[in-house]
Structure formats: C-alpha cells, structure tokens
Write a protein that binds this DNA or RNA. Structure first.
Length: 271
DNA sequence: AACACCCTCAACCGCTCAACT
DNA sequence: AAGTTGAGCGGTTGAGGGTGT
C-alpha cells in the first residue's frame, strides 16, 4: 500500500486553475460524467492530479453550485447544523443546496466562529417551564441512554471542553412530548444517545445538565458562552431558583451520534 | 505612494474508509 | 484475512485583494 504521490512529485501542475483548464474539465465531465478521478486527467488531457480535478469540479465547476453571499437563513441553518453535527462539513453542505463543504467550512472559519455567541442558547425558544426537580424527573423518565459526563474524572469544580453537538428537540413530536410514537421510533431507531434538559436560568447562568451516577452536574457559562469551554458545577449549587427547561440532544463526543438518526431528524418536515 | 497587516477562499495535504482483489 | 486502491473528508496553507497607517 502507499499513498498516491502528490502532484508535485509526478510533475503535474498545481495552484490556481486557468479558464482553459476549467473548460476542458467541464467539457469532459459533461460527456463522460463524474467519477474515475484517477484516470480523468489523462483522458481529458489535463496536467493535474485526479484529486485536484475532483476538488475543482466539486467546489467550483458543478452547474448546481450557488454563487453569492450566504443568506441569513442559510447562516442560521449552518449554525444549527454545526451545533448538531460539529465540523462535519459535507453533512452540513448536504442540507444546503448549492453550497459546498469547502464553502461552508470557510464561511464558518472566517465569519461565524468569530461571532462567539452561543447560537444554541440564543436560538432556542422557551417552550416549557419546569422546576429543577421536575426537569430531573423528566430526564430520568427518558428511555434514552444517559451517557456519563465527559469530565467524570476531572476534579470538581472543573473547566471542561464541551463537545459542540447540542440541538433543540425537533418539534415533530409536539410540545412537551419528548417520546416519539412506536411507529416513529421504528423509523428513527436508534436516536442520539442522550436526551436531557437544557436549562435557561436567570442571571448569567446557563447550561446543560449531565447526570453522572447519582450526581447531577451542569455547565455554566457567562452568557457569551462561546460553545467550547464552560465551567462544570454541581447542579444543586448552581440552580438559582426558578428554571425553564428545553430538551436538547447531547452527546459526549460526536462519534457517539448515529448518523441514520441524524438523517432522520434532519429529514423531518419540521426540521 | 508604499508598506504592513488582515481577511477570504481556492487549493492542497494527510488521513480514513469502503470496495475490491 | 490481508493487502491495495480510489474516493471523500476535514484541517491547513498561502496567494491575492482589501484596508489601514
């Protein structure tokens, strides 16, 4: 085995594409279709590696690619999808017709990352009022697996890196009903592995609750909540009194997420 | 006008994964 | 089962344009 030699090692052209190269590549793909990238340059008469051709086609030449600025709606969708999927740019791009993974990745890195305001916290509407005990009880009743807190072994109180994969509960199942019907479950199985409330506190305290054995912890941010680093505190000590709770899906790592479930969620009409 | 710095985004790199032998 | 290969993905780079001094 071995990696294919890069373009420079086999005397192929690198860098920006010329208009002529674009024309040749487009004409070739129009006749022969996509695929066979390895052999494409030779057949098309391009002094490029197949990888480079694929990238140029996928990110720039495809006719369905949408040009122009990202709209506010698209930006909102990117933010929501990023909260759900993390840096899975191709999956995110799949939900934005005409946009490429590269474009979205660039947009995120250059524009959205700087905004440093939690899109999750700011965009989730308050729909349900729960007391802390009610919310805990509700979470306990959930049929979904409760993952351990990622920072279990971290001395308390601790600062933990928070996986960037929360999202609001889809409204497809109706307000206050967090358990899908059996037929819905049959379609959706398995769901993301953790469902717990997201608490909206008064003052500056915001967070998500983690159940870790008998202990409940929650994250606490300062209201700007950049989505990456937050403080972990014991829930009983953090609760300011009255709370509103919404349901979110949380996972301790993006790898825990089941892509079929996500696809199902994303394909739901409400989404 | 000249230079430095910043920003954007197309392109590249290195890796993983699935399909195939 | 193990090796090979191509496709695809996400992180990173750097050219070029814009802006500030």
């Amino acid at each position: 085995m071995g990696r294919s030699p890069c373009c420079s090692k086999v005397g192929l052209k690198r860098g920006a594409w010329t208009a002529l190269e674009d024309k040749i590549l487009t004409a070739y793909i129009k006749v022969h279709g996509e695929g066979q990238w390895k052999n494409l340059p030779k057949r098309a008469g391009l002094k490029r590696c197949g990888k480079s051709c694929r990238l140029r086609w996928m990110n720039y030449l495809r006719p369905e690619i949408k040009r122009g600025n990202i709209s506010l709606d698209e930006e909102d969708l990117i933010v929501r999808l990023h909260n759900l999927l993390g840096n899975r740019w191709s999956l995110i791009a799949g939900r934005l017709p005409g946009r490429t993974d590269n474009e979205i990745k660039n947009y995120w890195n250059t524009t959205l990352r700087k905004k440093a305001v939690s899109p999750v916290i700011s965009s989730i509407p308050l729909k349900t009022n729960y007391t802390h005990s009610q919310a805990k009880s509700r979470a306990k009743k959930s049929k979904w697996t409760v993952s351990r807190c990622a920072a279990k072994s971290t001395p308390f109180p601790a600062t933990v890196t928070r996986p960037h994969v929360t999202r609001a509960k889809p409204t497809a199942y109706g307000s206050g009903n967090i358990v899908p019907s059996s037929s819905e479950k049959a379609q959706a199985q398995p769901w993301p592995n953790l469902e717990l409330p997201l608490f909206h506190g008064s003052h500056s305290v915001l967070g998500e609750e983690f159940l870790d054995g008998a202990d409940a912890f929650m994250t606490r941010g300062d209201g700007t909540f950049n989505g990456n680093t937050t403080e972990l505190v014991r829930t009983s000590e953090a609760m300011p009194g009255s709370w509103n709770a919404d349901y979110v899906f949380i996972t301790n790592g993006i790898d825990d997420l089941d892509m079929d479930s996500l696809t199902y969620l994303l394909d739901s009409e409400d989404w």
